[in-house]
Design a protein around this nucleic acid. Structure first.
Length: 431
RNA sequence: GGAGGGUUGGCCGAGUGGUUGAAGGCACCGGUCUUGAAAACCGGCAGGGCCGCAAGGCUCUCGUGAGUUCGAAUCUCACACCCUCCGCCA
């Protein structure tokens, strides 16, 4: 949620900022609500004050055993008007809150203008895509060749956009999760956490807009619970409704969890393979930071995610998302894109965002600043990394002419010393 | 599934329908004392909203929502969550 003070103080600037990301802020509606709110609120509080004064008087009079009927009559007289005003005020505040909660964050000034992903800016690139002396296959064929990727069984079990992993590939999947968690906790100072894979609607609305994006989530029937689309949902909500000690900042958490996404609206997109699934695993990095340190924290977290790609020797590039491609809650986002030889393209494998105070205001997550005042914390998160896509990258980048896959050295200890997953005899790649 | 207990400020915990946003303690901050620290003592210290340049003022909030009342942390009802015991299951 945007800071309403900002809207009151400098509405044109906020509108201009939102316009950069293609959001048309309804200024007239906002001003109308604000005007109504002001007058109704002040009248309500005036009446409440009157009532309080009278009640105190009555208390005093009764305490002394005197007659209080005049004050009591006076108090009764304003009851109806008070109630009417209180009801009206609650309605207005409800409307205002609903209005504000679907307004996205304002991109920071240093976010490049743009309409779509094509306008994102490459800020750095690491590694050189390998030259193959044969035509590299995509992960679906590589996985089939290993006898380790089975989409037919998956669809029998749960339909499209699921996968079944077997043998060395399943093991590789597990190894990746362990490896990522170990790097983030041992080398980068994150605390490992395990969390519920469902959260309440309130928590979901704390990190994003439930009203806007609930079609993207799987909901538990008959209950106010949603399967998490990323562990950002539970982990960021650790600090919801709390005032954290400034000296406990930054808080750094790493969480391995499955992620569930309905992928509504992406029909026909990435239908082949395990690039876009209803269920995938991810190691998520979350930082709760002091506002003065959040830019730094965002850079650090992005580097922490990049470290995984480097250790796995996977070429990637870091993109600064443009205003048109940035997520609802984000003020600034880097995407990491890994090189996939099977697609001959860089594909997103991590998204690292600084939400500044946007989520914190939705969640009421605060700390006491130097002046002793409460202030929203800043929240930062990013994938470190998406495990399914990392698996895809390892299979495609590590494939050999004979159909086997070479395991990156950093992963070998996690594979019980296995350096190569051999091709399974007799299994033919799909056409 | 059955029975019972609970939900109060950063934390613990008291609370009679009436000047209670709420005793007391802990934690925290400031001060006195001390060579320094500790202890002791003194003082400060909830959050949200609104108005105000500020100082400050007003208002709301004792799980949530409704109700009774001139007035509710306190009474009534509904709901949520937590805990204990029994049963069942991993």
């Amino acid at each position: 949620m945007l800071d309403i003070q900002l809207l009151r103080k400098d509405l044109p600037a906020a509108i201009a900022g939102l316009k950069r990301r293609g959001f048309a802020f309804d200024e007239a509606a906002f001003l109308k609500l604000e005007g109504e709110r002001k007058s109704v609120q002040s009248r309500t509080e005036e009446l409440q004050g009157k009532k309080n004064t009278l009640s105190k008087q009555i208390g005093m009079l009764k305490g002394k055993g005197e007659d209080a009927s005049v004050a009591m009559a006076e108090s009764t007289a304003i009851t109806d008007e008070l109630k009417a005003n209180e009801t009206k005020l609650a309605e207005i505040q409800e409307k205002q809150s609903a209005f504000l909660r679907v307004v996205p964050n304002i991109p920071r000034a240093d976010v490049p203008d743009g309409k779509s992903e094509h306008d994102n800016v490459e800020v750095r690139r690491w590694g050189t895509p390998r030259k193959f002396d044969f035509k590299p296959k995509d992960h679906v064929d590589v996985g089939a060749g290993l006898g380790g990727l089975d989409f037919d069984t998956a669809s029998k079990l749960a339909g499209a956009r699921f996968s079944v992993l077997k043998g060395g590939v399943a093991r590789l999947h597990r190894a990746l999760a362990q490896f990522m968690l170990d790097v983030q906790t041992r080398e980068h100072g994150y605390t490992e956490v395990y969390v519920p894979y469902m959260v309440t609607g309130e928590c979901a609305d704390g990190v994003s807009s439930l009203a806007k994006f609930k079609e993207d989530l799987f909901k538990i029937e008959g209950r106010d619970l949603y399967l998490i689309p990323t562990s950002e949902y539970p982990v960021t909500n650790f600090v919801r409704d709390t005032i954290v000690d400034a000296k406990d900042l930054p808080m750094k958490f790493a969480c391995h969890s499955p992620c569930f996404r309905s992928e509504a609206g992406s029909y026909g997109k990435d239908t082949r393979g395990m690039i876009r699934q209803h269920q995938f695993d991810k190691v998520e990095l979350v930082q709760i930071a002091h506002p003065d340190k959040s830019t730094e924290a965002h850079e650090e977290l992005t580097r922490n995610a990049e470290a995984i790609l480097q250790k796995l020797e996977l070429p990637y590039r870091t993109m600064l998302l443009c205003t048109g491609d940035i997520g609802f809650s984000s003020a600034r986002t880097y995407d990491l894109e890994v090189w996939l030889p099977g697609q001959d393209a860089y594909r997103e494998i991590s998204s690292c965002s600084n939400f500044e105070g946007f989520q914190a205001r939705r969640m009421q997550a605060r700390f006491k600043n130097e002046k002793g005042k409460t202030e929203p914390v800043h929240t930062i998160n990013g994938s470190g990394l998406a495990i399914g896509r990392t698996l895809v990258a390892v299979l495609e980048n590590g494939q050999n002419a004979d159909g086997s896959v070479t395991i990156p050295a950093a992963l070998v200890p996690y594979m019980d010393g296995v350096t190569v997953i051999p091709a399974k005899a007799g299994i033919q790649p799909s056409k």
